[in-house]
Design a protein around this nucleic acid. Sequence first.
DNA 1: GTGGTCTAGACCACC
DNA 2: GTGGTCTAGACCACG
Lengths: 123, 123, 123, 123
Amino acid sequence: MNVNLNKREPVYVQVIRHFKEQIATRNLNPGQEIPSRRELANQLKINPNTAQRAYKEMEEQGLIYTEGNSPSKITKDEKILGAVREELIGQAIDSFIAAIGPIDVPLDEVVGLIREKYRGDKE
Amino acid sequence: MNVNLNKREPVYVQVIRHFKEQIATRNLNPGQEIPSRRELANQLKINPNTAQRAYKEMEEQGLIYTEGNSPSKITKDEKILGAVREELIGQAIDSFIAAIGPIDVPLDEVVGLIREKYRGDKE
Amino acid sequence: MNVNLNKREPVYVQVIRHFKEQIATRNLNPGQEIPSRRELANQLKINPNTAQRAYKEMEEQGLIYTEGNSPSKITKDEKILGAVREELIGQAIDSFIAAIGPIDVPLDEVVGLIREKYRGDKE
Amino acid sequence: MNVNLNKREPVYVQVIRHFKEQIATRNLNPGQEIPSRRELANQLKINPNTAQRAYKEMEEQGLIYTEGNSPSKITKDEKILGAVREELIGQAIDSFIAAIGPIDVPLDEVVGLIREKYRGDKE
DNA sequence: GTGGTCTAGACCACC
DNA sequence: GTGGTCTAGACCACG
């Protein structure tokens, strides 16, 4: 994973999104340990505070949990985990619609462009 | 039009985008007058400086032009006007792909969701 | 107001509690502006980051709101405001009960001690 | 007894408080044996170091004593034992007053709430 | 002026 | 080692 300092999107938000993507694609599983704040900060070359902020927010959202001073883990709450994928997809669709809606593009043109550019899954 | 003060997107960018949408859908036509800075500021309840900034940027992009003390007008340069629509669509598609790509959603599911939610053009 | 660095309770939590007390006693009213992050930091001799953190949390709790870049204000949501007093009282009572409960102190002794030490309101 | 890893109150302090409550209510009597460090750690599922720390602190406070390799025992010093109850009560009252004081709650309301919620002793 | 984010580095207590 | 908090100071863009 990489982090982009120049994007409008704050680094800690990028980090959170990255973890959500990992969860949505099941690359991170319930109960699995995630890197410590310091480790993550080293890996991504960001400040430990920024890592801490991302983790704190994820904890508030119930995505991870922390017991005492052991490394944080992915939640085992399947309801929350399952919602992550839908949340990401929903947000992507919604902001796409919000952007494309006011321009009056025919649906077929939209779908055509998506098909053309989309390479997430070849089928 | 409304403006959202709390979005990450700056107000002046929202204003610009709004004008671009009007241009893309041909609600604003070449040579047509647009509101004065002060009028716009009053309508949208924004700071006149913000209106000024939006207009300045649009002028730099060649979208509008100002002659002396008369109200600004939409450019008559068809090349620029034509590009606006594609620019908006391109941006929308690109950021959608960037958001949905990492989640491994099958293309058909994506298209299905778009079809379902998209109501820009009834067909 | 003062802030105590040596307490177990984090500074930013103390700040939040202070604002809640002000709200509960109606010293801060709906819509009223509160000091900017920098101002508060200067007043309390704390770091602006700490002030920012307190404000961010208060905003998440709906206690204050921020529009664009103008100073934050106390929410006008009377439901939230009304709940603050009860929340503070409830927490105080609950943690008191949790502490005193396991020691089997007769209710009359408890009440007697409270009456003796309590000087919030003479009556 | 249970221990909460996520409370602000450190685990070893929770353990100590638990023993003090047992002493205050005379569930633990002078000279009575208490579990070994290892036993306690197993029962509470805590780290043996944590159990050790709790016992060490209790020993320093004179609450327990250890002779050679035999299990630690509750002190026989009645002066110390008697003070435990008052200490716990005093702390509970003080922090309650500190929390409720700034909110200007009439004394009668406070007492009413306490009476209502307090079920340490039915009467 | 405002809010927001980030880096850098320190300190603490707990386990 | 871990998580948590705080200071110090900088930068940015917005209004």
